[in-house]
Amino acid sequence: MYDAEIFAERLKLLRRVYKLNLQQLSSLASLALPVSQATINHWENKRRVPALSAIQGIADVFSVSLDWLSGRSDIPYTESLMCSLEREYCPLKVNAPDESIITLWPAKTAMAPDEYINERVRHIYYSLGVRANILLLLQQIKLDVLKNDLIIKNPANHKYSVLYTDINQEYMMSLYRLVSVNNRLGLPEKQAALIPFSKPIFDLEKEIKQSIHHKMDDE
């Protein structure tokens, strides 16, 4: 059952963890389904009940389960959902003005380790939290490219490409850190499983645990 109180709390928690204001979340969510910052504000203040499609869109931005966001579960991530969203965003593609498709990532200009590209072993080398971070950054990069018109035509061959140097470099460096700065990379699968996972930049699971402890201390 949908719980407005829990939904509002968890939506605000997600924005706080990822350091997103209302406008930033509105822009990211609108990559899939238009939603205004005023509408998100109404949800957080329990003044409106969101449509199912809207809740699903917000959940997908953060790679969390719809059940967790709506209060039906206390587990934010699932392997099956993460894999489904990764198939949507990896490789990350955008449409050029001539309707050709440009692969933004992974690409020669922005590569990724085989351990991430290979869906079969990805869960061994990357935690669900890190993978959720990666997916949100890919959405931010796509939005940055589209919003700032970073797709240009080469006058020599009339083909379109992306101005990688003009993409928000904080996004690109954070993506590199999450994907490539990882002590498990390069190790055999069994050995890699013995090494602690790299920590996410935006740690939702840690914040959830801290919130639970605070509530228990207040009781």
Rank of each mutant, 00 (worst) to 15 (best):
S80P: 00
R16T: 07
T165S: 15
W105Q: 10
E5T: 12
L22R: 03
I40F: 14
Y2N: 15
Q210L: 14
S30C: 13
L175V: 08
S30G: 12
Y125L: 04
N45I: 03
K19M: 06
N45F: 01
S198L: 05
K93I: 10
L92E: 02
L204T: 06
V64Q: 04
L178W: 12
L66K: 04
M173F: 09
A112D: 02
Q56T: 13
D218G: 02
P200C: 09
R131F: 05
N154G: 11
D166H: 11
E189K: 15
K209S: 12
L69R: 04
P106Y: 03
Q191A: 12
L137F: 13
M82Y: 07
V61C: 15
E5A: 08
G71D: 09
W105I: 15
K153F: 11
Q169W: 01
L52T: 15
Y2P: 15
K93H: 01
L135Y: 02
N183I: 00
R184P: 02
V145P: 00
I101M: 14
S84F: 07
N41S: 15
I212P: 01
Q169F: 04
V49S: 14
A29C: 13
R122P: 00
L81T: 03
S27L: 10
A107S: 15
E86W: 03
L136Q: 12
P76L: 07
A192P: 00
S161A: 07
L13E: 12
S53R: 07
Y125G: 01
T78M: 08
E205R: 04
E170D: 09
M82C: 10
I167Q: 06
Q24G: 14
Y116P: 02
L13C: 09
L85W: 07
G129A: 13
A4Y: 01
L178I: 11
N45A: 13
L25V: 08
I201M: 15
N157L: 08
L104E: 05
K209N: 06
A156Q: 10
S180G: 08
H213Q: 14
L175M: 02
D166C: 03
K142Q: 15
H123I: 10
A38I: 06
Y89H: 05
I141M: 14
V181C: 02
Y160W: 13
H158A: 09
A112K: 09
A8E: 01
R47D: 07
S70Y: 02
L14W: 04
D114K: 10
S65G: 13
R48S: 14
N157W: 05
K93E: 03
E79Y: 02
F197H: 14
Y125H: 06
A156T: 10
R131Y: 04
I40D: 06
D74T: 11
N157F: 08
L138Y: 04
M1L: 08
A32F: 04
D60P: 01
S211A: 14
V162S: 03
A59W: 09
D166Q: 10
D166L: 08
K199G: 00
N133L: 08
I58P: 12
K46E: 15
N182P: 05
K153A: 13
A107D: 14
E115D: 10
L187W: 11
L52M: 13
H123Q: 10
S174H: 05
K153H: 10
Y2C: 13
N168C: 03
Y126M: 11
P91K: 02
S84P: 00
A96C: 06
